[in-house]
Structures are given as structure tokens and as C-alpha cells.
Amino acid sequence: MTHSSENDVPTETPQLKFLRRMVTTLTVVMVCGFLVVLTLLVIRLSSTGPTLPEAIALPDGITARAVTFGEGWIAVVTQENEILILNSLSGAIEQRVKITVGEN
């Protein structure tokens, strides 16, 4: 009768050792990727947007259809097919662009 001794530890095959290292490496890569995505989300969501004025004063009779904010300017598309470029600090009209729609 043979007795198993404490010295008889089963040896790890090379394939099993490779698989264990691969799983560990992939786990580390996934954790690092998750941390990067989480960090980018926190940075992106915590940034402030553009500074918006409390109100935009348009000339009498002009109705806005769309508004776009840029660095130092505000573009307002009106119902009269016109684009007004306003100074974002003073609100003064800097430029008017008439929109002409071509026939197809």
C-alpha cells in the first residue's frame, strides 16, 4: 500500500500556467479600461458648458427659430429667413445674413 506524502504536489502543465497568466492579464486590462472610461466620464460630465446670457434682446418683430452659441458671438436664425450674428457680451447685432432658398 502506498501512502501519499506531502511532497507529492501535482505539477502544473504549461498550458494551464499559460491560461492562468492570460486570465490574470485580461482581468488587469479590463480593470484598467474600466477606470479609464470612468475617469473620462467624470471629466466630461463635470465640465461646464458655454456661458449663456440671461436673455437675448432681438429687434421688434423678429422671432427666433434657432440659436447657436460660439466664442464671443451668438447666431440667431429668424422666422424671416435671416441669420443675426450678435456680440455675446453687448448683444449688439454685428452681422445680418439673408438666407435665400434656391429652387430645385
Rank of each mutant, 00 (worst) to 15 (best):
M1N: 10
M1A: 13
H3G: 08
S4V: 08
S4F: 05
S5N: 04
E6F: 08
E6V: 07
N7K: 09
N7W: 04
V9Q: 06
P10V: 06
P10M: 07
P10G: 02
P10K: 06
P10Q: 07
T11E: 10
E12P: 05
E12L: 13
T13M: 13
T13I: 11
P14F: 05
P14W: 07
P14D: 13
Q15T: 11
L16S: 14
F18N: 12
F18H: 13
F18E: 15
F18M: 11
L19F: 14
L19T: 10
R20Q: 11
R20P: 04
R21Y: 15
M22G: 09
V23G: 04
V23F: 08
T24P: 03
T24H: 11
T24W: 11
L26D: 14
L26W: 12
L26N: 14
T27L: 15
T27M: 14
V28A: 15
M30T: 15
V31Q: 12
C32H: 13
G33C: 09
G33D: 04
L35M: 10
L35V: 09
V37Q: 14
L38V: 10
T39A: 08
T39Y: 05
L41I: 07
L41E: 07
V42H: 10
I43N: 08
I43C: 09
I43R: 12
L45N: 13
S47K: 12
S47V: 09
S47C: 11
T48Y: 07
G49D: 06
G49H: 05
G49I: 05
P50T: 03
T51Q: 08
L52Y: 03
L52I: 02
P53S: 04
P53D: 02
P53I: 01
P53C: 06
E54D: 08
A55K: 10
A55Y: 07
I56W: 01
I56V: 03
A57K: 10
L58K: 00
D60C: 05
T63K: 03
V67A: 02
F69S: 01
G72K: 05
W73T: 05
I74F: 00
A75P: 02
V77F: 01
V77Y: 02
V77C: 00
T78Q: 00
E80Q: 06
E80W: 02
N81I: 00
I83M: 03
I85V: 06
I85A: 03
N87D: 14
S88P: 01
L89M: 13
S90K: 02
G91V: 01
A92R: 06
E94Y: 13
R96M: 06
T100K: 05
V101S: 07
G102Q: 10
